[in-house]
């Protein structure tokens, strides 16, 4: 049996509904909200500020520190235990690494930029939503960055290559599933995050990455629109 209709009725390279908003947390230096379908992420940026603990500081450039956290009520009904666990620590690390190639902290030696990502609801693709939100929040905070970073999950369900998997697809039981979160720098075309859960053939992987690229240009447009919306008041200038 083949997978000829997606569980939520989307086309095979159709994304879920994307929504982005910048400047949602007034107290933070920069903040953003990003949602893809049933997954939504808030990101708040504080800094550059003094580095604590001191041993983290780097005299040659600033340090980026991301913190990923799912809210207790964000799962499918079970309470998610708050606090850092193995998974959250790993995602914090890969998020930092995904954003780092795009941001330039040479102007801020010994300082640190903190990014806090919180997810009020999750339906697969949470690290991708987190990266999209964090990238917008960093731009909102005025951190020098060569470009925005976007992320999306691609993969295969049974015999089909799909884009932006939801949880029901990740948990599909009648065939093989592969879930591949991809983060990319649009201008350079560089991939800064590539993980995989499951099995996939080489041909399908290449096909999936091609589709990720296409999906990411769409996500980039959503991000740019949200950022410009935030500074719109500035647009009716003299």
């Amino acid at each position: 049996m083949s997978y000829d209709k997606r569980v939520d009725g989307r086309g095979f390279d159709e994304l879920r509904k994307m929504e982005a908003k910048v400047g949602v947390i007034p107290r933070a230096d920069g903040s953003a909200y990003f949602s893809m379908g049933g997954t939504s992420a808030y990101a708040a940026v504080y800094g550059p500020r003094q580095t604590y603990p001191k041993f983290l500081q780097d005299p040659s450039k600033g340090v980026l520190r991301c913190h990923y956290a799912m809210m207790p009520f964000s799962g499918a009904g079970d309470r998610v235990r708050p606090g850092p666990n193995r998974r959250a620590k790993e995602i914090s690390l890969v998020t930092t690494n995904a954003l780092l190639p795009a941001i330039d902290l040479h102007e801020f030696p010994n300082a640190i930029v903190d990014v806090f990502i919180s997810l009020p609801e999750t339906d697969a693709g949470s690290r991708c939503a987190g990266i999209c939100a964090a990238s917008l929040a960093l731009a909102d905070a005025g951190i020098p960055m060569t470009e925005l970073v976007g992320a999306v999950a691609v993969g295969r369900v049974d015999d089909k290559v799909v884009v932006d998997l939801c949880y029901d697809e990740e948990a599909y039981e009648e065939g093989e599933v592969a879930d591949i979160p991809v983060a990319m720098l649009y201008n350079k075309g560089e991939i800064s995050l590539l993980q995989m859960d499951g099995k996939i053939s080489k041909d399908m992987l290449l096909e999936a990455l091609e589709r990720a690229k296409k999906a990411l240009t769409f996500i980039h447009d959503v991000q740019v629109k949200a950022l410009k919306e935030r500074f719109k008041q500035v647009e009716n200038i003299e």
């Binding site: 909102d140 005025g142 470009e147 950022l227 500074f231």
Partner: peptide, 24 residues
């Protein structure tokens, strides 16, 4: 030429300048 901040562009002859709008 690209921008690396959110900012306001000023084109003055041959010079393309981006004035940042936010930051510390």
């Amino acid at each position: 030429i690209f921008s690396n901040r959110v900012g306001l562009v000023q084109v003055d002859g041959r010079i393309v300048k981006v004035i940042p709008l936010n930051g510390k």
